[in-house]
Design a protein around this nucleic acid. Structure first.
Lengths: 213, 213
DNA sequence: CGACCAATTGAATTGATTCAAGGTCCGTGG
DNA sequence: CCACGGACCTTGAATCAATTCAATTGGTCG
């Protein structure tokens, strides 16, 4: 009963030491494919398992009572997501662009908590960074910070792929999709970026991005 | 060498099971008093110890390069703060109103990580909640949510004490202090709250608060 | 090709900020 | 005890950044 998908093929390609450590302590399940916009878990679902992104992009979101959406985070290949405080998810996870997800289950008796703590603390740091962005940055600064974050996470030094659409970016940055569009135009007009296609940004001047008004 | 302040007097009065569990696994130091606006730890300081608030209020903040401030959280008596991802604090902690802080150090060999994980995950949940507030709520909603949060955390059902000043609230909610002032006036005019003094809110209609436009 | 969905762009509006002027509170010293 | 000074808070008026509403363009897929 050995199938390819149950074998932890991804382990060797994971860079992040926290994730590597976690993988070593867990029993990876098979990879499941989630088509664009499909739900990985819903708000209110039982929490518990962790998820490893094998490929593709997922978004973690919350809704207000009247349906406004905040995208808390995006996760790419190699990222682990799904840990929650209580036994219920207060946010929901969706595939952005068709993503392969592997479920991770803790191996009994191992120091799983230590490994998970490292990831949780880093998640906390990320989110706190995002508080500063949402609370104290203007539209241009938000977009610039987003592009720089993607540059770094995609390990590229000038081309950023945008697997998510304007609406997702807007809900991540606390803007409207029209504003996202306009800000990109401003950055283009200032010769800081190029927009060769709708899902691709070429960064001409990363320093300028970091100093956008 | 037994002094009153080194004895963990607070343990018995702590409600939060996560904090109780953590206290049981740690060696509480003595209580230090931090006067108003004094720094508990600075950005860039070595991280490591955890801190338990004995009395008073503290704020956790971050600054942008040009000095804008985001208050990430407030902590009151019984709250634990100070955990960070790396070995350096990326935010700084200050006393808001004169606070007593006890340092907690892990006892060797105990399951400290498990205990800390619970707290970290809850912190994560809190911060994610705050993302929704900063990203998708208007000024009135932000203020209403803040008051309701304080109501709950102060375990009161109609009177909220505001140990922090307008500026702190503004930087917590991603507003200016003038807007905070104006929003409070709006809520007063709508007969949802009373403002018997500058550091005190009486909630007349908590349901209305939860439904503020 | 036509239909549909996403993205862009423009114009008008608005919510929050900025700038400016008072007001309140509180501690200190005459 | 009261006057003064300073810090914080409130309120008003003008401004501005971002949103809303509306139209158009672009891209993709049957």
């Amino acid at each position: 009963m050995l199938s390819q998908t149950t074998f932890p093929v991804s382990t060797s390609t994971i860079r992040d030491p926290h994730v590597r450590a976690l993988l070593a302590q867990s029993k990876p399940g098979s990879v499941t494919f989630f088509p664009t916009d499909s739900v990985i878990y819903a708000q209110g679902d039982q929490a518990g398992p962790l998820y490893l992104v094998e490929f593709g992009t997922i978004r973690i979101c919350r809704l207000t009572a009247d349906g406004r959406r905040q995208v808390n985070s995006f996760h790419f290949a190699g990222d682990v997501f799904g840990f929650e405080a209580g036994d219920e998810h207060q946010s929901y996870a969706e595939s952005v662009d068709g993503a392969g997800i592997r479920v991770l289950r803790a191996v009994d008796g191992s120091g799983f908590a230590e490994k998970l703590l490292g990831l949780a603390l880093r998640g906390l740091a990320r989110v706190q960074e995002h508080l500063l962005l949402l609370g104290r940055m203007n539209a241009n600064e938000k977009m610039a910070a987003f592009i720089l974050d993607l540059l770094q996470r995609q390990d590229a030094d000038d081309v950023v792929m945008l697997p998510m659409q304007r609406n997702d970016i807007a809900d991540y940055l606390g803007l409207t999709f029209e504003t996202v569009s306009r800000v990109l135009r401003v950055l283009k007009d200032r010769r800081i970026i190029l927009l060769p296609s709708v899902d691709r940004i070429e960064v001409l001047d990363a320093d300028a991005l970091a100093e956008v008004n």
